[in-house]
Amino acid sequence: MSHAATWAFRVRVAAAAATSRHVPAQVARLPRVSPYVVVAAVVLVGLLLFVAAMGARALLAPKAPTRAKLTTYESGVDPVGQGWAQTQIRYFVYAFLYVIFAVDAVYLFPWALVIRSTGLGAASLVEIGVFIGILLIGLAHAARRGLLRWF
């Protein structure tokens, strides 16, 4: 955790926890408490809030269950057909092309940064060529499959 983040966190905790005059003293003592305890406490409080809200709703809300209300779809229309449906996978094209065009950037930029400064030499040029080549094979495959036609 960076210093800035820790600091912000402390402030928030401190603000939430105390309004007394001893705020500075408490901030000073906080480092002794493991930050994890604080996180756990926040999680716990969050859970409690959720449970309290749901519980209060369950206790307070009027209930008048009828058969229709207990069906899965309360709209009154009976579910028809079966749950099995085919997922549209046509967006895989975008994923595919994204991988091809974005992944090269991941390596190309760092490579471009260091190629001059550290005598990587010609070998690295070949290597990056192989890398691009592999991506190109993917692109060729995609083109051949008709994925690059947009009309």
Binding site: I134, I137, G138, A140, H141, R144, R145
Partner: peptide, 10 residues
């Protein structure tokens, strides 16, 4: 494997 991909395409 890469050759296989090309074979598959062409």
């Amino acid at each position: 494997a890469l050759v296989g991909v090309l074979v598959e395409a062409f």
